[in-house]
Amino acid sequence: MSRVCQITGKKVMVGNNVSHSKRRTKRKFQVNLFHKRFYLPEDDRWINLNVSAAGLRIINKKGLNAALKDAKAKGYIDNI
């Protein structure tokens, strides 16, 4: 499973390690992902999501249904 947030669409970014002598080598900036279970009371079921810390804040702010609806509209999730 790829390291992509299913709510925000955040994924791994590529950048440089810069040493004291200013030499640059490639590195990856990983997403702060969590594998969380959420309860959908409308469907009376649990769902599993890979969610970043920012995605958890969006779910807390908007609510789970609104966040899932926005993620589906943007194409981040398809089968939930």
Rank of each mutant, 00 (worst) to 15 (best):
F29G: 00
L33Q: 08
L64F: 06
K61R: 14
R27F: 02
Y76T: 02
S21P: 00
A71D: 10
K28T: 10
N32Y: 11
N16R: 08
F34R: 13
G15L: 04
N65G: 06
V14E: 14
I47P: 01
F38W: 05
G75M: 09
W46H: 09
L40G: 03
N16H: 12
Q30L: 14
I47N: 01
R24T: 09
D44F: 01
A54I: 12
M1G: 13
V4K: 15
F38L: 08
R24C: 00
P41K: 10
V51E: 04
R3D: 13
Y39S: 07
C5M: 07
K10D: 13
L49K: 04
L68D: 05
L68W: 07
H35L: 13
K62Q: 13
G63F: 08
V31W: 02
Y76L: 06
R45E: 10
K62W: 15
M1S: 14
N16K: 11
F38R: 01
P41R: 04
K61F: 14
N32E: 13
K61W: 12
K22R: 14
D43I: 01
V12G: 06
R23A: 09
L64G: 03
I7M: 07
K10E: 15
V31H: 03
F38Q: 02
A73P: 01
I7R: 07
V14Q: 12
G9E: 03
K74Y: 10
K11W: 00
V4L: 07
L40H: 03
G55Y: 02
N79D: 15
Q6N: 02
A66M: 12
N65D: 13
A73T: 12
A71F: 12
D78V: 13
N32G: 03
I77A: 05
